[in-house]
């Protein structure tokens, strides 16, 4: 017998969990403010480079891009993890393909004012998506719909809900939680929860 968590209900085990995390089957909704209600027809996504050049997609243009269907584990800094979640989204590799940049840093921003930062490298090479479907359904506003950033190898606060754009920067700029005690990078496997971890 392997070591199984008390909440074990499927094929995955506590061995799949980063340190300090527990397994959950539901999908808790965390929010630092009112839920923005953005209709697809008023939604757009903009990548702004370090020179100020803007690359913008309307919903229609965005949905015309090729999509991927990643199955990923989610790790929230509030200690729950949800394994094997199914998403559909556009890879950041696709969105960044035509973007000329030498920036090393990225700051995602959202409808409602939320921001979160990460190295640009963490958005490349099949590690990040702009996701618009969860479990086969259109992404609900509570979970960040119409579309959210999905960067599952970092704590979930990095996967900005209601994402509206990403600014590429030559210098790191801490986002909403990163400027208030949370770790600048947020690797769950190294348990980088707070400043100095």
């Amino acid at each position: 017998m392997g070591i199984v968590s008390p909440g074990f209900s499927g094929r995955r085990r506590t061995a799949d969990l980063p340190p300090g995390q527990y397994l959950t089957d539901d999908f808790p909704v965390l929010s630092a403010g009112p839920t923005p209600r953005v209709r697809p027809e008023e939604w757009s996504f903009t990548i702004t480079t370090e020179t100020g050049r803007e690359h913008r997609w309307t919903w229609r243009e965005f949905r015309a891009l090729p999509t991927e269907r990643p199955t990923v584990d989610l790790h929230c800094v509030t200690r729950w993890s949800k394994l094997g979640t199914h998403w559909e989204g556009v890879s950041l590799d696709t969105l960044l393909a035509g973007v000329e940049t030498t920036a090393d840093h990225a700051l995602a921003h959202s409808y409602g004012g939320y921001t979160t930062n990460m190295p640009l490298a963490d958005l490349r090479d099949g590690k990040a998506w702009i996701a618009f479907r969860f479990d086969g359904e259109a992404l609900a506003p509570e979970h960040g719909g119409p579309a959210r950033l999905l960067v599952p190898h970092l704590y979930l606060w990095k996967s900005a809900k209601w994402v509206r754009g990403i600014t590429l920067l030559t210098h790191d700029r801490p986002g909403f939680w990163e400027s208030a005690g949370y770790h600048d990078y947020g690797d769950p496997w190294r348990e980088q929860r707070y400043w100095g971890d």
Partner: peptide, 24 residues
Amino acid sequence: YTRAPGMVGRCPGCQAILFRVVRG
């Protein structure tokens, strides 16, 4: 707003953030 990685207090008039508290 407490169902978040930290506590966020917003203005009842304009929704702007007044204070944030993160507890490690």
